[in-house]
Design a binder for these strands. Structure first.
Lengths: 211, 211, 211, 211
DNA sequence: TATGAATGAGCTTTCATTCAT
DNA sequence: GATGAATGAAAGCTCATTCAT
């Protein structure tokens, strides 16, 4: 689907507000004001608030299934190297789409979520990811590099959950580490690096360390 | 603060609904109906919807400062054993207070959160936790059992984040592992055990494994 | 169903406006203003505009099935006398419920009508009426007083249609007959009498006159 | 006034929708879609929704002044024959313009009707009709064929009202007579014939029968 | 001429809250 | 203390119309 300049303007405004205040906590009027457009334009372009949300997911959703296939097929990388590449790719994605990531994290726990179009998209993407990472780990296991018994879903939850936690509570991290005066982009870089190292260590340990 | 029977009834209803539908997604009418009380009672008892939320946190908030002091001072346990005890204590807490935990997870990412009374409570509790676990780890480091460079905030984020992720998306886990027919209490036990093992392995690895 | 004073106040306001401006041409705001109540009260009491309409029909609908049974069973009246009594009863009804009568006349020709609760009520009442009058006419036919071939549906249409036409266009009648200065209640009496005579003549003619 | 092909297209679409859903119940968007033209065209061509309605009446209005003069002057017909010819002419008119007829029936009972241009047109036409029929009846009375005391306005109301009732509630008639499976054109023919016979009988009776 | 885009006003309904008893 | 009734504000959405091209 293609979106016009104005539609993107609205979608981006909605993204910011949904991320900050939640879907229910954001009124269509808020979005109109944030986007600097007439209230009626939103219904005009998207039909309804819910359809706008769907358009947002349609817009950003493509990034969910981040291109793991290429990495997996690459024979020059060891299984662990591939894991590391994937971790960095994932981190890169969610940091460049922080707003959207927050929305997804929020929406995942909603009542109506299971019934919605969006839910299906996310579920499918998650399953796909899981399958691909599953293949990767099996490859490592066959080569004798990774441990036998790996709980892949829990591994992914650790990856998603930790990143989630960091993104949604980064101000805590900032406070605790006394980095209030560090410019934001620098701070982002900092925590991306930290998170990358942390997750890689975590995965390496869990995949190769014999408990 | 003490709450009457009826007030608790309302608080519990609100807890369920806030957890399921979010704060903004829950109307005072919904709560009144869920609690089986008159609509006006809620404003009458709590003053406002927001005050009700605060009462809920006041009620459940005790859970945050989970009793770590005793564990830390216990000389019969090794540092790693203490960590394990803490992990289990934490898991036990959040699983027995799943609803409240979801609410907290949600509210953490909200706009108004930083400004609220609740936010201060959580922040303080987190800092406390971090200090205590910090002490614990330092103890292990002094004894030469734990690695030197440990990013404690990120470790905690992993613990919180993973548990969070599991609790808020347990239906995914259920689907993926084909456990739809398992009774809920049994399923809860199952994932608690899995999570416990997973986190312990994770911590042991990260704390003792030389990368 | 019982309605409170305030509910009746609203229903009556709605009745006036629906009759004058049509259902779609009347806004809930209009009704609130006409009834002198707060806008939100209408949803509070009736749930929605449509439900209010149903309440109106529930309220007035009882009058539709005007008590013909008693008349029919009365052995002291000849069939034609019975017809005359019914005509007067019908006229009395619709003149005392002019507003409601207009609403019904309007709604009968609406698209959504066939699907609504109201529609079912009206249809049933009409069928009932038709059956009863059918019996009456058959009685007269058996006694050799009425003609054999009578198209009852068309007879009723003439009765309903003529009365309808008079009620909805009484101002024309007033203009044409130069009765602008006659007080309204007197004018009402006048046209009721005229209509009564007209319909009775019509029925007598059609039922007894051999074409 | 002359209307272009596209304008007629819009007018016809509006006619169908106004007849079915009422003026207020029809949105300009609905009309645009039904006519298969751009939304803005309607305002562009007609100025406003109300002006479109006027154009519709301007277009169809000719139907009202149905050509009675010729009939009246025709010396080969008896007064009763002339009445019968008029009845058939009237029936033919309204059946070929059912949609428009419904709209008129609706609009007659509207608030704004009395103030509108349309209203004046209809009123004039009605007066004209009344005068002409009045002449016809007087002719019959002079010849001793018709009764003396005839309430012409009520006679016309019976004619208009019965036809009206049949047209707007023809589905009832269909149901009651179990003609659901009869093709529509055949059904139309059927009720036209029935109505014609009914009205002629009615008029003959009322005009010649001594009550 | 023709139209996609845009708009302010209005719609019905629900909100959290307060009033009167 | 407890509650049905009431309310102003705001919600999401549609309206007829106009603008810019």
């Amino acid at each position: 689907m293609e979106y016009s300049e104005k539609q993107l303007q609205i979608i981006e405004a909605a993204e910011r507000l949904f991320a900050t205040n939640g879907y229910e906590g954001t009124s269509v009027r808020d979005i109109a004001q944030e986007a600097g457009v007439n209230l009626a334009m939103i219904s005009y372009y998207f039909g309804s608030k819910e359809k706008l949300m769907e358009a947002l997911f349609d817009c950003r959703g493509g990034y969910i299934k981040f291109t793991m296939e290429n990495v997996i097929k690459n024979d020059e990388l060891s299984p662990l190297q591939k894991i590391n590449v994937l971790i960095d790719a994932y981190i890169e994605k969610i940091f460049t789409q922080q707003y959207f990531h927050r929305i997804m994290a929020r929406e995942q726990m909603s009542r109506h979520f299971g019934e919605s179009v969006i839910s299906v998209m996310i579920t499918q993407a998650k399953k796909k990811n899981q399958e691909l990472i599953g293949q990767l780990i099996q490859e490592g296991q066959k080569k004798g590099i990774f441990k036998k018994r790996i709980d892949i879903p829990l591994m992914l939850m650790t990856m998603f959950g930790t990143a989630n936690q960091l993104i949604t509570t980064q101000h805590y991290y900032r406070d605790i580490n006394n980095m209030q005066d560090v410019p934001d982009d620098e701070f982002q870089k900092h925590i991306k690096k930290k998170l990358s190292h942390h997750l890689k260590t975590l995965f390496k340990a869990i995949l190769t360390y014999e408990a």
